[in-house]
Structures are given as structure tokens and as C-alpha cells.
Write a protein that binds this DNA or RNA. Structure first.
Lengths: 249, 249
DNA sequence: CGGCCTATTGACGCTACTCAACATGAGTGG
DNA sequence: CCACTCATGTTGAGTAGCGTCAATAGGCCG
């Protein structure tokens, strides 16, 4: 089964990475990319359920998802936890810990995933040298913040139906931006994760999937989702023109 | 009544500002402070209800609250809106728009307030020159992000009682960090604003204030809040040791 | 095949929302 | 100074959306 491939020998290259337009390299020159690639470390792939970092772990690197998907959550005293984001390839992890000693949240792989490690000190030095990199970095940060604002709006004002529809449309747009189908995709997260993220009970999410299915909006087979009527889904999500176009996040 | 004082002639000084330990100047040398002060612009004070910026306004500056308090919210199609934060002196505004053309949220003064305007370009240049400033900047950003994570946890998992208790303790800690009483303070925001922020109905917030009052936890007179039993309030908010000590945000 | 985990479906109940009436205070003008 | 209005806040009654509990179904893996 296991072909012997030394994964660490695969040269990490931003230039050959399909995500460069979403990720940090966006807008960099060739020589700048060289330096960026030199700085990056590739760890071993993380398997489903394994942590990339945990609350309280010392912070020294940011991470960019290269493949797979990763959930980020805050554990609480009661044992309950709140998922604050699902990260797809090209998205950054660990921003909440910048300028602090330790991570304030936990990142767990939803499937076998690989990440590019960006040692924070070196990253800062590179940002210092290349203003373009710094700009793209801050731009990604601000997207993170506005994305979280949208999420606050969801949890504060929207009912269960709107939340799930918005969630699916958001995923759809992000898959599309990554060259995948916007109509048909596999959810890497469980119903439990979705419910947790959306502030709902698992049963409510399950019932909504069934309802959307019955209404002909979706076709759902376990974790495979096919969007049958995207206009209707948008109507349910109450999207305005403003929210609709871009691949948010 | 109105003594004639040309407000624009009052020299803006970070050095004399009591907030320097919370705000950007933290850790800067005297000469660096000089440059920072030279960059800053002081606008006229904003009165209650007036906007600092609105969704769609062109972005060219960040703002630091100097006095007063400012609410930030996202307007939506339905006319409903979601307040995503209340900003006290020393806190930054406009981070969500960095690297973009326009603001993605609206900032409204809750009372007569003054802000320091930080032109974004110049701010970036200064960050480039002074790594200490850049670090403090990123540190404030990451605090913003983790603060929003906490908020997601509140809206996703906590009931009304816990939300209001947590909100009051958070305000209390932030007032304390600014040299005010942690036990007694005036709320600059209406019940409506509080309810909106916490994802609750106004009536629920009002009922909770009454309940806390009856239980001897608070003494409430309209917008004046006196915390009578802070231990009990912490118990209600389910604070762990982890969340308790620092002046979050 | 059997055990385990994830997902679905149904019945019921509670929390917090909605609607409505009323109270209180601030501001305004006579 | 008082009467008036308007904004803000409080209180009560009824209800609905969603959570909880419980049982069942379906996939996956050893």
C-alpha cells in the first residue's frame, strides 16, 4: 500500500502552487517568491483528527493550508467547544496568536491535510523587505476580520435555515475560487461540526438538509452535496447583491 | 456656556495620553513617538449618533479612539443590523478594511467622542521603520481576532444570562484597564444596542437587568450600573481562571 | 457479521422572541 | 414652571423555533 515516498524531499514551491492567487504569494515577483519559499517549512501531512496546534501551545509560526481542510475551535471549561472557522487551501491559520506567547485556539485536520509553515519572525522580516508581501498579509488579515463580522451577524440575527444556506453558499464560492465545482462537493466536516459552527443542534442541521432535499434545492447523500437550485438557495440565504459575488473570506 | 477653545490647536500627544499603554504607542521610544504624533491627525469631535465612517466609504485611515465610545455595526438588506463591537479609548477602528478600497462596516459615536486618525499609508511606512510599532500593531490585531472568537463562542453556545454577565464583566475589565472603576460605570449604549450586540431581544436584556438587580448582583439605575457581587456575576458568566484575569480585548 | 460512529426522524418542552401596554426620563416650547 | 411629546426602558402574556431526549437507520471497518 504505502509507496515509499520521502515527502520531505518534495520541494515546496509557491510558484507551482495553484493557490498562489489566493494565498500570500499573490502579486510577488520571482525573486521575492524565492525568498518566501526559502523561508517556508513543510511539515509532515496531518491526518484526520490530528492537531496542527492546540490552545496554549507556544506560538512561533503561522500556517497556510496547502491541501485538505482544517477546523479551528475554542475549547471551553464545560467541555463544550465552539468552532470558529473551517480553513481551505490558501487560507492562513494562527493569526489570533500574533504578538502573543501561545495559541488561543486549537486547529484540527478534518482530513489528511498539508500546510506550509511560516516561522513568524522570518515572516515579519520578509514583510519588512517586501512591501507587497506585507500588503497581501494585511489584506488577508482584514478579510479574516470581516469574515468573522459576517459570522457574528449570522449567529446574532439569522435563523437556522438562513445559516445553513449561507454556509453552503460560502463553501460553494470558496470551492469555486479554488477551481472546484461550485455545485457539487464533499463536506469534510461532520454534521456535528456544521451544527457547532452555526450555533445549532445536530438534529436541526439534519432536518434542514432533509428539508432542502425535499424542496429540490439540494441533493444530499451523506457528505456529498449537490446544489440543484442555487437561485433558490440564495433566496433562502437572503443574499443581497453585495454579499453574493466574491468568494468571501 | 461654550468657552471659546479652538480644539484643533490642542496639540495631540501620545506621550501625555493616558492610554499609551493600551494603544499603539506602547513600547515606543521618544523619537518614535515624535514621528507617530506627527503622522496623526485629530479630527473634530464626533457627537452622539454621528458616523466616523460608513459602509462603502473609501478607506484611507485607521482610527484610534481617544475619548468617548464608538459602536461598529454591519447594516443588512432587511434594515436590520448587527453590532460587532463597542470601542473604548485606546482601541483601533477600521482594521476590517485594510488592503481594500472601502469600509465594510459603519462606526457611530455613542457619545461625544474624539479619535486619532492614522492615515493608512503613512502608518504602514512608520511600521516599516519601527519594528516595535509594527509588533504592537499586529498584537492589537490579533487581540481583535481572538476577541471576536470569544464573541462567536458567546453567540453560538451561551444563553442570555451568561451573555449579559460576560458582557458586563468584559466592560468592567476594560474600564478598569483605563483607570476607571470596575464596579461602577455608565453604559454609553442603549438597551437596544446591548441586545443587538448580544443577539437578544431588548425585552430579554431588560428582564435580565431586573433579575440581576433582584438577586443583588447588580444595582441598575437606567444606564448606571453598579456591580454589587462580582464573584456571583463571574459565576453566572461561567468564567474560568483562563478568561478572568486580563482585561480582554 | 457485529460493533461503532454518524446521521436521521419523532415527540416534547423550554428559552427567548413577539406583541402589547405601560412607565420613566429627557428635551421642548408655551 | 408645567404640559406635551418622543425616546427609552420595563413588564406581562402568549407562542414558536429550536434544543433535548430517545429511538432507529445506515455506513464503515475490523
Amino acid at each position: 500500500m504505502n509507496r515509499v515516498v520521502d515527502i520531505s524531499s518534495i520541494k515546496l514551491s509557491c510558484r507551482s502552487c495553484s493557490l498562489s492567487e489566493l494565498c500570500l504569494p499573490r502579486g510577488l515577483s520571482d525573486s521575492e517568491l524565492d525568498d518566501l519559499e526559502r523561508m517556508m517549512k513543510q511539515g509532515r501531512p496531518i491526518r484526520r483528527g490530528e492537531p496542527l496546534f492546540r490552545v496554549g501551545d507556544p506560538f512561533h509560526s503561522l500556517f497556510a493550508v496547502r491541501s485538505g481542510s482544517i477546523k479551528v475551535h475554542l475549547p471551553t471549561v464545560n467541555g463544550e467547544e465552539q468552532i470558529v472557522g473551517f480553513h481551505l487551501p490558501g487560507e492562513l491559520l494562527g493569526l489570533d496568536a500574533m504578538g502573543h506567547e501561545v495559541h488561543t485556539c486549537t486547529a484540527i485536520a478534518l482530513e489528511t491535510s498539508s500546510v506550509c509553515e511560516l516561522p513568524y519572525r522570518q515572516m515579519q522580516e520578509l514583510c519588512h523587505q517586501f512591501s507587497g508581501l506585507n500588503e497581501q498579509f494585511l489584506s488577508l488579515i482584514s478579510k479574516e476580520i470581516s469574515g468573522e463580522h459576517e459570522m457574528l451577524l449570522m449567529l446574532g440575527k439569522k435563523n437556522a435555515e438562513v445559516r445553513l444556506a449561507t454556509f453552503l453558499l460560502n463553501l460553494s464560492a470558496r470551492f469555486k475560487a479554488r477551481g472546484f465545482s461550485e455545485r457539487e462537493f464533499n463536506l469534510s466536516m461532520s454534521r456535528h461540526d456544521i451544527a457547532n459552527y452555526l450555533g445549532l443542534a445536530v438534529e436541526t442541521v439534519s432536518r434542514l438538509f432533509t428539508r432542502f432535499h425535499d424542496e429540490g434545492v439540494l441533493q444530499v447523500q451523506r457528505r456529498l452535496v449537490m446544489i440543484k437550485d442555487i437561485q433558490q438557495l440564495r433566496a433562502i440565504a437572503q443574499v443581497s447583491d453585495k454579499n453574493c459575488p466574491a468568494a468571501a473570506r
